[in-house]
């Protein structure tokens, strides 16, 4: 029965090649297959984004999962004024913000979280590279901007759309992050050589 719901548009183009726009319209009508196409297309991207924000695999799993749950619940109201990708990033950003708030609110959780990071640092010190550490030293806001602009290849306007802030704010965050990263990574390189 489910295949009956798939639009000819999506079906004819071969699901994996159907444009976001067509999949979104079908998903908005409740077409599970169309939403699955979008999920398959963007899950790894959102998971990587989440991981770069928290550096914890389990948390990245949770953030990515919650992002797609919220996307599924909210897709009927999505008006396609932003690209679907940017819309997903915006949701992932909000989920990550909630995750950080929860971590701060529950001190114990934060302690556990910190302990987990420290444990990982100790156990994987050999391959825990300098770039990883430099990014972790950035504040959450700066790191998010760096992840979107440098890793996801967004321009400042798209990143601003995803983060829900002004383009100037993203430019500033990138500017500040670049200074910090260059300082840390340059000194690290000198130290190691």
């Amino acid at each position: 029965m489910e295949t009956v719901l798939i639009s000819k548009d999506v079906e004819n183009r071969n699901d994996a090649l159907a444009p976001d726009h067509a999949c979104v319209i079908q998903a908005q009508a409740g077409d599970a297959r169309a939403f699955e196409v979008l999920f398959d297309r963007y899950y790894d991207m959102i998971h990587a984004f989440a991981y770069r924000l928290c550096f914890l695999e389990a948390e990245a799993d949770d953030i990515a999962q919650e992002t797609f749950i919220r996307a599924a619940r909210g897709i009927a109201g999505y008006r396609q004024t932003a690209s679907f990708k940017n819309w997903l990033y915006r949701i992932a950003h909000n989920v990550a913000v909630d995750w950080r708030r929860r971590a701060v609110r529950h001190r114990e959780g934060l302690t556990e979280f910190t302990a987990e990071v420290e444990a990982r640092l100790e156990t994987t010190e050999s391959d825990y590279d300098e770039v990883h550490r430099a990014l972790e030293d950035l504040s959450a806001e700066l790191r998010e901007a760096v992840v979107l602009v440098y890793f996801e290849g967004m321009n400042h306007r798209d990143a601003a759309e995803a983060l829900g802030c002004a383009e100037t704010t993203v430019s500033w965050r990138i500017f500040r992050a670049k200074r910090k990263l260059k300082k840390v990574l340059s000194s690290g390189k000198e130290g190691s050589s």
């Binding site: 699955e36 999962q65 749950i69 599924a72």
Partner: peptide, 22 residues
Amino acid sequence: LRVPLATESARARAKHRALIAL
């Protein structure tokens, strides 16, 4: 920077729950 790939179980769980939420 290395980023680990999501595990198949995490992906399957996320997809299942998202589809329920659709």
